[in-house]
Design a protein around this nucleic acid. Structure first.
Length: 456
DNA sequence: TCTGGGGTCCTAGGACCC
DNA sequence: TCTGGGGTCCTAGGACCC
């Protein structure tokens, strides 16, 4: 907590719906609901006119239609939202170098770096009113709610207090007086499950939280959250405004109108999703080691399976093969409502691009268009150069096998997946390729079976 | 014919290593 | 031929946020 109110939180009001009303004047003043419009859709954003009817974010679209049949139901135009968000973030960065976006419609701004004459309440209040005016200008009329306080935590709470189109500045020294009467659910990170656990412990308000020892909170809700609650209940929060937070994962998922039962159709979907993940990774210069498959069953139970490669990849065919192999190990009888593919364990460098020539890059692109058929020219080359895995039989979990020339084959494996990479003493690690363990393409490289040892 | 999609963070258990 | 402990990595699941 700082001595002055120098953390600003800005939140665009009913953002997606507001962009739609801006771009389509006939929708202004009318209920607008943006979200999934299919049978299994949910509401992403409801305009304030729709909220009057009880429509809320995360509500099923079916229920929203029942409550507000006359609203306009739209599936969303993310290019427009991104462009509008970009305009706002650019504006914020022009007033302070320390801007931390939380999503398309939200950001923290550190006012200590904003060059204000001072950080007294009247000064930051005037600054925020001017900023809100400029947000309206650069967005074509969208309103923003702003909170300013001595910490991120309180700035975010403050921006919520006078939505929409509001401004709240929390004067230093008044933080706990504001906070203590509030319900525990105002604390970011306290959702329905935690509210219930705290309720069972007799804790409802922030003031009640503040009277409990850290040990007891940790016992109730776990170490990390317990420690956080102990501090936040006292308005203690020294988290910095951090610009440029790094991406940790990239994923694509889809829920289908009718449960999927055809394995071949599921495989085709997973391969397509892997291609989309790879495309987005390449567009952002990312590569990663862990490929995950997410499956939501007909009864909403959700399974995840993952497999970690020895080196990062952004190759569509590699991601697709791993995802398919993970799917192969799951029992999907009964039907599947959601499938998803993701990559995590990201490196911020793209291994192959560091060394690739123009023609090698073309080869990589060509492989992307052919996710079904494994192609192993690198391994063939290595084989022809005399490299062999030596003296051992492949088994799941085996790591690196070197030949007498120091050439290595990486065999990482598990859950029916074999991952292969070649490297030599002279070259950097080559591309990673992965296959289902029973893929016939692997057979030619599988080392000969050793004679079993003599029993003693 | 309840219950999205894109993320982040945390927990817990097992393997493995020192 | 018994007994630990800590650290790291990986996996699976879950809570939460917008």
């Amino acid at each position: 907590m700082r001595a002055q109110a120098s953390v600003l939180h800005l939140d665009l009001d009913a953002f997606f719906a507001a962009v739609e009303q801006r771009d389509k004047p006939s929708l202004r003043g009318k209920p607008v609901v943006v979200g999934g419009t299919g049978g299994r859709g949910v509401v992403s954003t409801a305009s304030y006119e729709a909220r009057v009817f009880g429509v809320r974010s995360a509500m099923s679209t079916r229920e929203a239609r029942a409550r507000c049949p006359n609203a306009a139901y739209l599936s969303g135009r993310f290019e427009a939202y991104r462009a509008t968000s970009q305009a706002v973030m650019t504006l914020l960065r022009s007033v302070s170098p320390l801007v931390e976006p939380l999503s398309l419609d939200e950001a923290f701004v550190d006012l200590e770096q904003a060059g204000l004459p001072d950080l007294e309440v009247p000064t930051v209040t005037a600054f925020a009113e001017d900023l809100r005016t400029r947000v309206r200008e650069v967005t074509g009329g969208l309103t923003a709610s702003v909170g300013i306080a001595s910490s991120k935590f309180l700035a975010k709470i403050a921006s919520d207090l006078r939505k929409p189109d509001g401004l709240v500045v929390v004067a230093p020294g008044t933080e706990t007086a504001l906070l203590h009467p509030m319900h525990v659910s105002v604390i970011p990170g306290v959702g329905p499950a935690t509210v219930e656990r705290l309720r069972r412990a007799g804790l409802h308000t922030v003031a009640e939280l503040a009277r409990v020892s850290e040990e007891e909170l940790v016992q109730q809700v776990g170490r990390s959250l317990g420690q956080a609650l102990h501090q936040l209940a006292r308005a203690e929060d020294d988290r910095a405004v951090v610009p440029d937070r790094e991406t940790k994962s990239v994923s694509v998922e889809g829920t289908y109108e009718h449960d999927l039962t055809d394995r071949r159709q599921m495989e085709a979907i997973v391969v397509r999703q892997a291609g989309e993940v790879a495309r987005r990774m390449k567009a952002n210069g990312l590569s990663g080691r862990t490929v995950s498959l997410k499956v939501r069953m007909y009864d909403f139970t959700t399974l995840s399976r993952s497999s970690t490669l020895p080196a990062p990849t952004e190759d569509a065919a590699t991601i697709a093969r791993l995802a398919r192999a993970l799917l192969a190990d799951l029992d999907t009888s009964g039907g599947v409502r959601l499938l998803g593919v993701g990559v995590s364990g990201l490196a911020d460098w793209v291994q192959e691009d560091l060394f690739a020539t123009a023609s090698e890059t073309e080869d990589a692109d060509a492989a992307d268009t052919d996710p079904g058929q494994p192609d192993l020219p690198e391994l063939l080359e290595l084989e022809q150069a005399g490299a062999r895995p030596r003296g051992t039989t492949w088994s799941p979990g085996m790591d690196v096998v070197h030949d007498e020339h120091g050439r290595g084959w990486v065999w990482g494996a598990g859950r029916g997946v074999v991952t292969v990479r070649f490297e030599t003493a002279e070259t950097p690690p080559g591309p990673v390729r992965s296959f289902p363990a029973d893929d016939p393409a692997l057979q030619r490289w599988r080392p000969p079976v050793e004679d079993p040892p003599e029993p003693q």
